[in-house]
């Protein structure tokens, strides 16, 4: 599996979003992973590389403004590709929220999840085109708005 999980953590260590691509882990394991990984990542200096090995998987992260985007992948996955996926996610977020900031993600966490879903499924990249992702999102928002109006 490509991406095992995706975390968005603020610089202060607050969890903004967690997305697991597997249901095999217990809540306890997940909590421990989130804690360990986010602490390790937050403890790294800016000059250090964005890849580290943790237990039996690799952690690839990148910081955008005050948010750390952290992905856990298999050991033999391409780190640069994972960085690209993270970047692609940030780009789509940016396009969707128009100049995304941390608050956008906090208050629209359902949409942030929706965007991840449009990019990745089961941890594999399913759509690499930003435009087509945005178009789908727009269509979906419209449908849901109509539904909300009819209610």
């Amino acid at each position: 599996m490509a991406v095992k999980f995706m975390l968005l953590v603020s610089r202060q260590g607050k969890i903004r979003l967690t997305k697991w691509f597997t249901s095999d882990w217990t809540a306890k394991e997940k909590a421990k992973t989130v804690k360990d990984v986010s602490q390790t990542v937050l403890g790294r200096k800016t000059k250090m590389c964005n890849v580290l090995e943790y237990k039996d998987f690799k952690v690839v992260y990148r910081r955008y403004a005050s948010l750390f985007f952290i992905a856990g992948t298999d050991l033999d996955d391409n780190e640069l590709l994972t960085l690209e996926i993270i970047h692609r996610y940030v780009e789509v977020l940016d396009k969707w929220f128009l100049n995304v900031c941390e608050l956008d993600i906090i208050f629209n966490f359902q949409q942030a999840y929706m965007i991840i879903d449009e990019l990745l499924i089961g941890g594999e990249l399913q759509e690499s085109s930003k435009r087509s992702v945005i178009n789908t999102l727009k269509r979906m928002e419209e449908t849901e708005k109509q539904e909300a109006a009819s209610a």
Partner: peptide, 19 residues
């Protein structure tokens, strides 16, 4: 029935259900 609710439901299932 509604897509809006379905999304919420499936998302909640995805995050909380285990094997």
């Amino acid at each position: 029935q509604k897509t809006l609710y379905k999304r919420i439901g499936y998302h909640a299932a995805a995050v909380s259900f285990r094997q």
